[in-house]
Design a protein around this nucleic acid. Structure first.
Lengths: 205, 205
DNA sequence: CGGAAACGAACGACCGTTAGGTCGTCGGCG
DNA sequence: CGCCGACGACCTAACGGTCGTTCGTTTCCG
């Protein structure tokens, strides 16, 4: 096996062929998108015929949904645990949360890309399930920012824009991390610095 | 016409049916991706039959390439003019460049999404043409950061990570701007503030 | 011996693209 | 001035191929 690190979080309970399908689908969806990859290609990469997929999944979309659900769950859980580890200091909180955000995107870059690109390919019901988790993560970060604001240690003209900017920095790590020679922890530290600077800098102009 | 603002930059010289095809393709590629949209759908949205497309373009991929080329050109030109307007002060330079970066992504969000998602759908030759422009834009921003560093007004542990973080903030604007009630100029100003803070903050830890 | 997991074959739909023809416009020439 | 040929834009029809999925059967393990 060429992959040194796991493609999927341990959270995925799928095993055997099911897991193999998720992994091979992830590799391809991550590179060429949901609509750019056929069921036959995934099946044959997993060593079975296309028709055999339907013993494990009810549709191609379910493959995408399971990946996106696992990805969003893992992300939220990483943020939540990071916050629990951070204590009560807003600086520590934002540093822990941003570092976890970055780590997720560098550890599972393909999963993160799929999660951030393929929302429109999901049925409305499945999209809603994913968006529910996403809004929990958004709220978690916004809570940290707002708390820091009300304690007077963070100063931004608009908290949501602060959230958007910090979130964006991390999301994009999934697009370049595996092509560059950075250490995950260095990036996580640096981005945590960036977030602190961005939120706490003296009000500009 | 429902569209209030232009879908495409004035830079696109295509007119008539050709332009119509670019616009209808952009609307759909921006929502569901290159592989998620058929030639027939684009053609019929433009009021012609699928086969008539080939009087204007030689392939579906050329439609994507023209969009991506226009988008990357417009982006680079906006950055370049912003820098020319900024004078010699590193703070002014980064503010102007970041504001232009944000403005591009809020003015042409669909075009920006296509440019940032569909690189793997291009042939190698076309991808290279697009990546050439992209690396010019990268270098332009890196030059501003490095110059600020060597003048001692910017302090980041790694200039490329600073570039990546600032670039990411702006790129993601294309994903949310048209769904939220922000004024472009407010976002551009705020993100320029963020970039200045991110680059010039006191060395953390 | 039962059931899960795999198979080959086939379904109807749709894919990007080509071939060949019709129509209207327009520049050049007798 | 009036005709003519070329051309561009569009059409219908069809190509070979691939799509996601279903069906009925076989294989194999507990």
């Amino acid at each position: 096996m060429a992959t040194v690190i796991a493609l999927l979080p341990a959270r995925s309970t799928a095993d055997g062929t099911h897991r193999r399908l998720l992994e091979e689908a992830l590799l391809r969806f991550g590179e060429r998108g949901f609509h750019g990859v056929s069921v036959r290609e995934i099946a044959e990469a997993a060593g079975i015929r296309a028709s055999s997929i339907y013993a494990h999944l009810e549709s191609k979309e379910e493959l995408l949904f399971q990946l996106m659900y696992i990805g969003h769950e893992e992300h939220y859980e990483m943020l939540r645990h990071a916050l629990l580890d951070a204590g009560a200091d807003p600086f520590s909180q934002i540093r822990h949360v941003v570092a976890a955000h970055v780590r997720l995107h560098a550890t599972y870059p393909l999963l993160a890309r799929v999660c951030n690109r393929e929302l429109p390919a999901l049925s409305e019901a499945n999209r809603d399930r994913v968006l529910t988790i996403r809004s929990n993560s958004e709220q978690l970060i916004l809570d940290v920012i707002n708390r820091g604001m009300s304690r007077g240690v963070f100063h931004v003209s608009d908290p949501w824009l602060g959230y958007a900017a910090i979130g964006s920095m991390g999301i994009r790590v999934a697009e370049w991390w595996d092509q560059r020679a950075y250490d995950i922890e260095d990036v996580a530290e640096t981005y945590a610095d960036f977030a602190v600077r961005l939120l706490s800098g003296a009000p500009a102009t």
